[in-house]
């Protein structure tokens, strides 16, 4: 913007815009801050937004952290997240690359076939029956495979591959490389950002997934963190996750919110590093071929 003397209305405008942005920041952050405050609440105090640091009590965290069930669930979550990313990314790349090649016979038909599943979903029970017929119930394969490929991510990946300059692939092919080698040595090295973005999309979805584990798994020892958190929040089997059978050292609310914080923490820690890749992914997705 030209930095000349601003008119009053423009100054008001800028002021309003900035106030709005600050408002957004406050509305986003205050609830999260309050959760943290409640999680630090000692006995006999009312929760408040400004609990002074000298009154903070980490008893709720201590009760949760020393519970092996929580660690087992964390391990399960890691397994589901990383295993899921590996499987999903492999399947997506392998399907997206051929479909990005315009000259592939039958390409339109296959894309249509895949697109149709995006538009029409058979529903919960029929899918459940498939997982059951494959004998995958109560195994991680059910959760890992059922949601392995997202049509959206596949199309984003395909669009990205199409945007790569064809001349590079041509050159490699003239040098005698087959399609497999082209993918490995030409396309993939150029696709680092999109692989990261799509991988993160899958990763976040897997990390947050609570419904499929509830639906497909019956062993409590297989449950990932979000399911555990839901149980803690809704007062189901709480004692399984909290040391000592019930809250002795921390108020019930503090325990619940400490669980929320603990489970959000990994996401918060990696979020600043990965945030910009997500934005990119959305923007690539919105560009049509």
């Amino acid at each position: 913007m030209a930095k000349k003397a601003m008119s009053r209305s423009d100054r008001l405008f800028e002021w309003g815009i900035d106030a709005f942005l600050v408002g957004v920041l406050v509305v986003t952050l205050v609830p999260m801050w309050y959760v943290a405050m409640v999680s630090l609440l000692p006995f006999g105090k009312s929760p408040s937004l400004l609990l002074p640091p000298w009154e903070w009590s980490f008893a709720a965290y201590a009760q949760l952290i020393f519970q092996p069930t929580i660690w087992r669930a964390a391990l399960n979550s890691l397994l589901l997240t990383f295993g899921g990313v590996l499987i999903s990314l492999t399947l997506t790349v392998l399907a997206a690359y051929p479909l990005s090649r315009r000259e592939l016979p039958g390409r339109g038909f296959i894309v249509g076939l895949i697109l149709f599943t995006f538009l029409f979903n058979a529903g919960l029970i029929p899918t459940f029956l498939v997982v059951k017929d494959l004998g995958l119930l109560n195994t991680y394969w059910s959760v890992l495979l059922n949601g392995a490929v997202s049509v959206y991510n596949l199309l984003v990946m395909k669009t990205f591959f199409q945007s790569l300059p064809e001349s590079l692939e041509e050159a490699a092919r003239i040098d005698g490389a087959n399609d497999w080698q082209v993918l490995r040595h030409v396309v993939l090295p150029l696709s680092r950002p999109i692989l990261l973005t799509i991988g993160l999309f899958y990763g976040v979805a897997n990390w947050n997934n609570f419904f499929e584990p509830i639906l497909f798994l019956s062993d409590r020892s297989l449950m990932p963190l979000p399911v555990v958190l839901r149980d803690i929040l809704t007062g189901l089997n709480v004692a399984e996750y909290v040391e000592g059978g019930a809250a002795q050292a921390a108020p019930a609310e503090a325990l619940k919110m400490a669980a929320v914080v603990l489970i959000t923490l990994p996401m918060l820690l990696v979020y600043p590093w990965i945030q910009r890749y997500f934005t990119k992914g959305v923007l690539i997705g919105s560009v049509k071929e």
Partner: peptide, 14 residues
């Protein structure tokens, strides 16, 4: 109306 038994137990114990 939304509490479960585990909540009830925690709270009377507290």
């Amino acid at each position: 109306a939304t509490m479960r038994r585990a909540d009830l137990r925690t709270r009377w114990q507290q």
